[in-house]
């Protein structure tokens, strides 16, 4: 194995990949969330559809293609390195487990968020596939805004979240995203070596804020649509 590859795939290298891709995903998810906020505007999806139209057509459609390719790679690296750390290498390193394990408490950061990273992460992976299938690879009705014909993504989103089962599932998954980030956000900085005894206090508090903002930001949307949007009313919002 070449030197470069052995460094990248060392125990420390894997963590640097997990951490850096994790932070990139945080960046992506933040932009995604900001874009989705247009759904809260009571304009029957005008702003939301226009935003989606812009993304699809910017730089003759190349922007979105390049971005999607990059995102796919980031997801891929994150999943492969994280699953190696938290599952395969972990299992190899302790072939015989303990009969009794108690959390030590005190300065330990071990808890449900940190121990469930593999569960919340893999759930997110399944979610992302279903999510893309539901909203991207589906037949979109057409709508005309400002004289331009565009996909009525808004109608698809509203139709989906009007189903309590789907809205409920989204709420559950976004709770998991919050858990993932409650540990993941500060952990990524630690993995990249950007941490010390003083910074960790700030980073952990930041992780709490990010976790709540992301989870609530995303789960508010399906709930809002489920309870407050009425497609039969002009403007779409009660």
């Amino acid at each position: 194995m070449s030197t470069f590859r052995s460094h990248v795939w060392s125990s420390v290298g894997k963590k640097m990949i997990t951490g850096s891709t994790g932070l990139m995903l945080v960046g992506f998810v933040a932009v995604h969330l900001l874009g989705n906020l247009t759904l809260f505007i009571p304009d029957r999806g005008h702003a939301f559809n226009a935003y989606a139209y812009f993304l699809e057509h910017a730089v003759h459609g190349w922007l979105i293609l390049a971005f999607e390719a990059g995102l796919l790679a980031v997801f891929g690296f994150h999943i492969v390195s994280a699953v190696t750390v938290a599952w395969t290498d972990k299992r190899k390193a302790r072939p015989v487990g303990y009969a009794l394990v108690r959390n030590a408490g005190g300065k330990s950061r071990k808890g449900l968020p940190s121990t469930s990273m593999i569960v919340t992460g893999l759930s997110l992976a399944v979610f992302v596939i279903l999510h893309v299938k539901m909203f991207k690879f589906t037949d979109h009705p057409a709508v005309v805004h400002d004289g331009k014909e565009m996909k009525d993504l808004y109608a698809v989103v509203v139709a989906a979240f009007k189903q309590p089962l789907i809205a409920g599932a989204y709420v559950a998954v976004m709770g998991m995203l919050g858990f993932h980030l409650r540990h993941g956000f500060w952990s990524a900085f630690q993995s990249l070596g950007w941490n010390n005894d003083r910074a960790i206090v700030v980073l952990e508090n930041l992780a709490r804020v990010v976790a709540v903002l992301f989870a609530v930001g995303f789960l508010a949307l399906p709930l809002y649509i489920l309870f407050f949007v009425d497609p039969s009313v002009s403007g779409g919002h009660r």
């Binding site: 938290a86 030590a104 300065k107 330990s108 950061r109 630690q190 990249l192 941490n195 010390n196």
Partner: peptide, 27 residues
Amino acid sequence: FGDCSNHGECEAVCPKEISIENIARMR
């Protein structure tokens, strides 16, 4: 040995209270 998931359980049991900031520094 396994890879570190930053649980920090090590610092809590360490009899000499070695901080996990040393792990960040190692990286």
